[in-house]
Simulated scan of single mutants.
Amino acid sequence: MIDVPLSVLDLAPVQSGRTVAAGLAATTELARRTEAMGFHRFWVAEHHNMPGIASSAPSVLLAHLAAATTRIRVGSGGVMLPNHAPLVVAEQFGTLHALHPGRIDLGIGRAPGTDQATALALRRTRDGLSAEHFPQELAALFRYFRGTDPGGITATPGIGEEPEVWLLGSSGYSAQVAAALGLRFAFAHHFSAANTEPALALYRENFQPSEHLARPHAMIAVAAVVADTDEQADVLALPRELAFLQLAAGRPQALPTPEQAAAFPIGARERHFIEQRREGQLLGSPETVRQQLDDLFARTRPDEIMLNTLVYDLEDRIRSFELFKEKVIAA
């Protein structure tokens, strides 16, 4: 029996032929609709210099999403800490927590979520951009939330307004940091499926209880496209794969239409890339996805599951979540 909280990870996609405003409006409507379905969290991810993703300013978007909903937790999946001064993150999420107490999640990542030139443009200095600086940056963030900065700086809002903190990761490094600090851990299975089980094992085996958490608590983010038939799901998922193919080639673009994806010349190398991308993900009819989910759950035993459904039309995205709740989980 799979009985864990279900949540949503959205990239605020910008669709080919449509505006950024339309993409953000679709994300807002998806938050409202998934809240009505009973999903637990709605997260957005920080990306930069990508014309197909509009969630480059998570704290701004989260303020809008929290105001547009009433119960669902909203959060970052994640804020990429190397891009920001810890004081700024504390003030932004302290503000969100003060405005929407009990509903804000701060998911933190250690990668910049973009290329190095863009990361440098964001940070304006190379200080703090490398992985070895991450633990110190994270410690500084917690000091601002708790009012223990040795320099006497007070984050207002921030102090006394600590949201629920998660550490995000796609490797063993983040799993070990989350375990050592006793933090909740969210693993990016949707783009690092081969590392999921080893990372979760590292996290659980090395977990140290903390003031945050008494025992390990892990969530996996998984790509999911559910449709009435396997064939329909394959058609809906192809634009997502083409978008990642273009990104890997250094040509990021807006999310293509299903027609554009179907017309794209896919050779043996592209087909291999697509098959690798789909390995371990959830794709197909409710019956197919239920079998895939049973296998994934048995191997990973997550405390929560977060679905990333990247398809072109909003109604198809909503339909995928409806089928997941009504015919996959409830089956």
Rank of each mutant, 00 (worst) to 15 (best):
D149N: 09
A180L: 04
A155Q: 06
A331K: 13
L62H: 09
T118A: 11
T28V: 15
G23F: 08
A249M: 14
D115L: 12
Q92C: 10
L120K: 05
L282N: 08
G23S: 12
K327Y: 15
D149K: 04
M306N: 01
V222N: 06
E205N: 09
H100K: 04
A261S: 04
N49E: 12
N83S: 12
Q246I: 09
R123D: 11
E164P: 00
Q232E: 15
R41M: 03
A98W: 06
D230F: 08
A223D: 10
E197R: 08
G152E: 08
A193F: 11
M50D: 15
A268E: 14
L141N: 10
R41P: 01
L81E: 06
A262I: 08
A262L: 05
R184M: 02
A36H: 09
L65N: 10
L87G: 13
A111R: 01
G23C: 09
L61K: 03
N195W: 02
G94E: 08
R33K: 10
S76Q: 01
R103I: 00
G172T: 08
F297D: 04
M50F: 15
D303A: 02
L183Q: 02
R290K: 14
A119S: 15
R271N: 07
E259Y: 03
P157N: 14
S210Q: 02
A131D: 12
E211G: 15
A199Q: 01
A117N: 13
F324L: 12
T69E: 04
I108W: 00
F191V: 06
V20E: 14
L87S: 09
L310Q: 10
Q232S: 12
P239G: 03
T288Q: 13
V311K: 01
S59H: 14
T70L: 08
G94N: 09
N83P: 12
A31E: 04
L141H: 05
T27R: 07
A175K: 01
V235T: 14
L168N: 00
M219E: 12
A67P: 03
P86L: 01
L87D: 10
G102D: 03
H48Q: 11
V289S: 09
I318A: 11
G128M: 07
V328S: 08
R240V: 00
A175M: 02
A111D: 10
L61W: 03
G38E: 10
T114W: 11
L30P: 05
L213A: 04
